[in-house]
Design a protein around this nucleic acid. Structure first.
Lengths: 128, 128
DNA sequence: GGTATCCTACTACGATTGTCGGAGGTCGTC
DNA sequence: GACGACCTCCGACAATCGTAGTAGGATACC
């Protein structure tokens, strides 16, 4: 129960991403954004998702205007961290190593990412 | 539809993990394993999950014995890769970098992992 | 001031998930 | 040959998820 972040369903995440992108905004704006991205959904579907997100406390709404304004309460990084933690717990008893190695081995990184990574990793001390 | 790996539900993954750990085995053995881990579930629950895993093609069964023997068809790494890919797609438009950096920054790695990582990362060429 | 438009609130419904119970077969043992 | 231990098969049921329709109020424009 503690980790409510985990209860984010797929379609809800889609909406939350729109909120991250757009900033505090209305159902209508999120709907437009999704339509631009090629995602066809009904107005009320988005509305339902946003209400569920609020019930789950991932967003808050300001109801002073006719069209309620919703705002994300959790950051993208926070959600990522939570998801990664779940993944680590589920698959590797909480160890981060296998995931990191898997990613570095199998995925393409941009030059900037490589540089940042080299710097970060260079600072690590295997110790003993 | 292509990526059937994504349709692995949480409780199903628990069972799949048991199969990875135990090798090809029966419902009873998986049940015992879960009980040892402190997970209290009924025999038929595990059975249902294993059948669903088979329907989703994550495992195959040999029905020649009275107690059917189930075997994982996908590896832990394969599932991890798929999950990571989903995470990347959902949260960072498919980019691996943010995940790697997030992990290296926030998670503890063992000395061995650090060494492996340094070696891997040292070989990367930011090039351009 | 009627009509189209937009918004919220509520309800709904099929699919998936997590969890089991019961029916009915087989097998070993007393 | 009845009893208990196991097994599979089938059905079920509540919760969550994805998706959306409808009712009814506000707004705005002609």
């Amino acid at each position: 129960m503690a980790d409510r972040l985990q209860e984010l369903a797929g379609a809800e995440l889609e909406v939350l991403k729109a909120l991250w992108h757009l900033g505090p905004t209305t159902v209508r704006e999120v709907l437009n954004h999704l339509h631009e991205r090629g995602k066809k959904v009904a107005y009320t579907t988005v509305q339902t998702l946003m209400i569920r997100l609020e019930q789950k406390r991932f967003v808050v709404s300001d109801k002073s205007d006719v069209a309620h304004v919703f705002r994300a309460r959790v950051s993208r990084d926070r959600v990522t961290r939570s998801r990664l933690k779940t993944l680590m717990a589920q698959l590797y008893d909480g160890a981060a190593g296998p995931l990191v190695l898997q990613l570095v081995r199998n995925e393409r990184l941009t030059p900037e990412e490589i540089e940042q990574l080299q710097e970060l990793v260079g600072d690590l001390d295997p110790g003993e």
